[in-house]
Simulated assay, not measured.
Amino acid sequence: MEVEVMSLYELPENLIKAIVDEGMKTAWKESLSLPTEAARTRAKAIIRKRIMESRGLRAFPEDAQMAARMFLEVGPLLAEHEAISKAVKKHPMLRNAAPEILDRSEAKALAAAEFPFATNRAKDFLGILLWRMKGTVNPPMKLPKD
């Protein structure tokens, strides 16, 4: 059975709220807990732009854009897998849209399956973004303070 993965940003409001309420612990919470779909869409665009302007990635805009798309898809699944798993216990259908991703290699494999035309450079950029998601005080998904 093939699972149709959705971006957490595209889930129905009640499922996003269920995940947030289970105790999201990373910077993804800031953008996913915004009150409206429009606000979450704007946050997603800000994150994508921030990634595309990152040092090292901006020299390859098409690959950076693809890496950003992949990151927005699999990053929250990896970073917030505990909150997602808790929410799945209450909303089992959520697992169909949000598969359990426990490490970077699983995240990269899912992204490769979801984005079959991604270049190797875009996949390498994704690996860097996933590493930076956990390994820095200023992760790629952190929204800038206005």
Score class of each variant (00 low, 15 high):
K25L: 13
S7D: 10
P140Y: 04
L78T: 07
M141R: 05
R50T: 06
F117M: 07
T41M: 09
P61W: 08
E73G: 06
T26N: 01
A111R: 02
E82H: 13
A43R: 08
I128L: 05
S7G: 04
N96E: 09
R104T: 15
M141G: 06
A68I: 09
L34R: 13
Y9L: 09
K108M: 13
E62W: 06
K17A: 15
A59D: 09
N14Q: 10
E37V: 12
G56N: 11
Q65A: 13
A59M: 01
W131Y: 12
I84E: 06
R104N: 10
M93S: 14
P116M: 05
L143Q: 05
V88P: 03
D146L: 10
A109P: 01
V74I: 06
L57G: 08
E80Q: 07
T119S: 13
R42M: 15
A107N: 07
S31Y: 01
E114M: 13
G135R: 11
E30D: 12
V20Y: 08
G56P: 05
R121Q: 11
S31P: 05
R104G: 04
W131A: 03
V74M: 00
E4K: 07
R55A: 12
L11N: 00
L15V: 11
I19P: 15
K134P: 03
L130M: 08
K123C: 08
I46F: 07
R121G: 04
V20D: 02
F115S: 11
I128P: 00
E62F: 11
L143M: 05
A18N: 05
T41I: 08
P61S: 09
R132L: 12
P35D: 15
E62K: 12
L77Q: 04
F117T: 05
L15R: 04
V3N: 06
T41P: 01
P140N: 06
L78F: 00
K89M: 15
K123D: 10
F117I: 10
H81A: 15
P35W: 00
H91N: 15
V5D: 02
I16K: 15
M66K: 09
F117V: 14
L110K: 09
A68Y: 00
E100F: 11
E82C: 06
W131H: 13
P92K: 11
S33L: 03
A27M: 10
N120H: 09
P99C: 10
R42A: 10
